[in-house]
Design a protein around this nucleic acid. Structure first.
Lengths: 227, 227
DNA sequence: TGGGTAACTTGACCTTAATCAAGGACAAGC
DNA sequence: GCTTGTCCTTGATTAAGGTCAAGTTACCCA
């Protein structure tokens, strides 16, 4: 990719890259490709050979898998400035365990796994950073299994809503759902119908107020008490 | 721990340790403790500070978490010669994400995380091994989420049974459930009652034959076809 | 050898959330 | 404007699996 100061500076702020020096960053830079993705563009597919990992620059990406009969489960939603599929670098089979597709028009940077892996040999600190990232992912997955097996749909939805709060706000907080409800539903492993019904229940009980994708949490403490 | 040639040789075969030289291994050895665990002994608890990881030498350990009202979900079952809780080494908060308890009388080796982490700085190859292990764990968790969200209880149970087969045997294969059925049930996120009923159904349909913990898979291809 | 406990099974019933079906809201394009 | 498609909502129904309760089996240990 042609050198671009602004993008280069952006790279410096990627957590995974923080321990690298300028010459290493430049090397990565020169092997990187910037890609524009129209909405609903497949970036990679589950079980296909993994040669790249990515950083989302603009837009939204969903990571998901499909069942035999076409049901989709969204595992994670990627927001700008997040790297994703880094974990695949050290997966034994070198295949993607999930598929990735843009939700809206997006831009990603594509990094070469092989190249980065070599670079990793020279930077213990970057190794440690990658380990920390994998640890975080692993923890998140374990928590998801907890949520799926020990908690019901309402619990998961309320956790999601509270998670959308900017900080520890306690009253009358407005949140905006930036992704379609059916994708949030899939992320939470519930059907769109059930999602809709639970939102209606929470409204009726006075916990929230819904106007399309804008939601006001009328009673944050009440919602917390549901957990 | 007092030096013991036999145990020392055993350490050499732990995947995570394979890249270490004898002096490094000896250093680990000297900071290791062998622990005997009676049945149902807690080894560590979820959310408690993580200072050690372990290798199971003999017995069986379950990794699990509890819901507020005491329901238990078994996340993984550890068999001899497996290391576990290594992933915690690089988790940001340094706490165990799950609890661990012996199922039967067991023996574990306990390793110091801090010490091993330092050692990791001098062994790139060991870093890579740990990364590979974390990658494997992560993949396993993602697959579990797939199973939980996209497949039903029968599917999960059949996958488990087929997974117990030594190799790609195709007919009249006997397997033995070495762990209590209720723990397998929890591992598969189904109740003991449902577990029992599904086994009965599979028996009635002629796929399997059950005598206590000894199960004969009468029709392996038929079972595979259910998936 | 018998008593006690934990594990397992079975039956009846219930709850949760999925499915099926229909209609409404909204935006994009002609 | 109207059409088309996508997303969302709502209602009626169903299915899967959980819960509760009662027994049975198996095993441990005095």
């Amino acid at each position: 990719m042609e050198f671009n100061r602004i993008i280069f500076d952006e790279f410096k702020h990627i957590p995974l890259f923080q321990a690298l020096d300028d010459s290493q960053l430049e090397a990565i830079f020169s092997t990187t490709k910037k890609m524009a993705l129209p909405p609903k563009t497949t970036l990679f597919e589950r079980d296909s050979p993994a040669e790249h990992f990515y950083m989302l620059h603009r837009g939204q990406i969903k990571l998901f898998f499909l069942s035999q009969d076409g049901d989709e489960k969204v595992v994670e939603i990627i927001y700008p400035n997040q790297t994703f599929a880094e974990a695949v670098m050290f997966m034994p089979e070198h295949i993607y365990p999930v598929s990735a597709e843009s939700i809206i028009e997006s831009e990603v940077f594509r990094f070469d796994i092989r190249f980065f892996r070599n670079l990793l040999g020279n930077s213990r600190e970057t190794c440690f950073r990658l380990l920390a990232i994998m640890g975080k992912h692993l923890h998140a997955r374990v928590n998801e299994i907890d949520n799926l097996t020990l908690h019901n749909a309402t619990y998961r939805l309320v956790v999601y809503l509270l998670g959308q709060l900017p900080d520890s706000v306690t009253e009358l907080s407005a949140i905006h759902l930036s992704i379609p409800k059916n994708i949030i539903a899939s992320r939470l492993s519930i059907t769109p119908e059930t999602f809709s019904r639970i939102m209606m229940q929470l409204s009726k009980k006075g916990y929230i107020e819904v106007h399309g994708n804008d939601i006001t949490l009328l009673d944050v403490d009440g919602l917390r008490a549901l957990l």
